[in-house]
Design a protein around this nucleic acid. Structure first.
Lengths: 257, 257
DNA sequence: AATATGGATTTCATATAATGAAATGAAATT
DNA sequence: AATTTCATTTCATTATATGAAATCCATATT
């Protein structure tokens, strides 16, 4: 999860961030005691850190229950981090076009540590009213975008990006490096990656890499939807669209093929 | 900006968050020295705090220039904060319908301190490829949503929510409490608020309040677009749509009118 | 090629600010 | 009314954050 080892000489900061990271989609609210326990901190320390975070707006309290939750400032910082990334501005129109043409959900994702992180998303017309998952992360080797990025990395960086053990959220997930190596070769050959129920049963996506002006991969885009709308011939068709869109984005970023 | 006074006994945390908040849309990247100066901190301290934030992923470095910027974890936390707010899930479909019917941009916003914070946004069909502003904040009294929320607040909370001096981003912005009082009365009478070039020249929006099951305002939704597409009769028409949508959302939240 | 310049890091002695055990307070629950 | 379960405050102790100065490093400049 951490990019590096915790930096010494800033214990309180590291602990405070640890507390922030405890607020997940699965458990978005915590009481003081349970959070202290989960974070391995003294209750007093936890209280003091949370109070500091709250006074800065990163933490808020449920007005009914007094439970701790993430605060509005987290949303503000997240928005700024997102907008600071020029990629989004460049790729937005392509994502919209892809979602329009295919009727499915299109995403822009980058690699962080060993996860694919969703930076932008245009929802499928079948998901009217659905909640976008911007800011969500999944193990890279289980996603089409993650595999597209990994495959476009030089081997040393690819190995560095892989976790010690490959998580397998479904029984179709790639479970070992041998299989992954073969898949990477295939993705390199094709120029796109398909993840068929490797992240979630019933979900299929197709991803292609985006390159910057130095020729390095910096992101990937994808189109995905339920398996029943993704027969082999349609996958091939979508793959061509996704690949072409990714190449146009790369070109806008100054990439010379 | 801060919800409360800085909490003592967590200096390092408060300072670290101060650093994070220095990364804005206007200045998304900083060198160590200038950031230390801007934050009023010693360079060594700044370095150490940034290193801690970086190792946790909240700060990243521009690979070309080494400049500091917000990191991927900021996006992750922002996404979680957003999804923790059930409001978004409930209102999403209504925003999409409003954007569809009017062709303009629809937003969901809440009040933080004295600002209206954008929680969700469906872009106008005139802005294909535009970048959504989720996580952006504006002075509440200059926005339609902000005024809708302020007007729906009891007087004591309304006063508490106003800053000492009212910022005036344009010459049409409400500049004094007297004028605001009259405007609030009007908004209460109408059940919706119009902000005509009060935030930005050429931009007009119409907002209506959303209430929870206790009858308290918790948010507002809006539809907005350029002044030239917003003649008086169309404003009235859109106001009716926005108000009805806000009422449907409130009803879903258990509000009994 | 050698040197200067403007950064970013590291070092280290010091004292301040963070720590946690225990006491207290405030709500729920019995 | 008593009990339990939390959150919050107090306070003495020391671990931890601090900043001045030294060093390193990359990039201009001569």
């Amino acid at each position: 999860m951490a990019t590096n080892d915790p930096y010494p000489g800033a214990q309180a900061v590291t602990r405070a961030i640890g507390l922030l990271k405890a607020f997940t989609d699965a458990q978005p609210e915590w009481g003081l005691g349970e959070l202290a326990q989960a974070a391995g901190l003294n209750k007093t320390t936890t209280f003091r850190l949370l109070a500091a975070l709250e006074s800065e707006g990163l933490i808020a309290r449920n007005p009914q229950t007094d439970a701790y939750r993430l605060g509005p400032e987290a949303i503000v910082l997240g928005g700024r981090a997102l907008r600071a990334n020029g990629l989004r501005a460049v790729s937005r129109a392509e994502l919209e076009a892809l979602a329009q043409e295919t009727g499915e959900t299109a995403t822009l994702e980058v690699l962080t540590d060993s996860d694919a992180l969703i930076l932008d998303e245009v929802l499928s017309r079948h998901m009217i009213g659905g909640t976008p998952s911007i800011g969500t992360r999944w193990p890279a080797h289980t996603t089409s975008t993650g595999k597209a990025i990994l495959a476009a990395l030089p081997d040393d960086l690819l190995n560095a990006a892989l976790p010690r053990r490959l998580p397998t959220p479904t029984d179709k997930s790639i479970a070992d490096r041998e299989t992954l190596r073969a898949e990477v070769a295939k993705v390199r050959r094709q120029g796109y990656a398909v993840a068929s129920e490797e992240l979630e049963p019933g979900f299929v996506a197709i991803g292609a890499p985006v390159h910057d002006h130095n020729g390095q991969v910096i992101a990937a885009i994808s189109v995905g939807g339920p398996k029943n709308r993704m027969p082999a011939d349609r996958i091939a068709e979508i793959a061509a669209l996704v690949k072409a869109a990714a190449e146009r984005i790369s070109k806008q970023l100054g990439h010379k093929p």
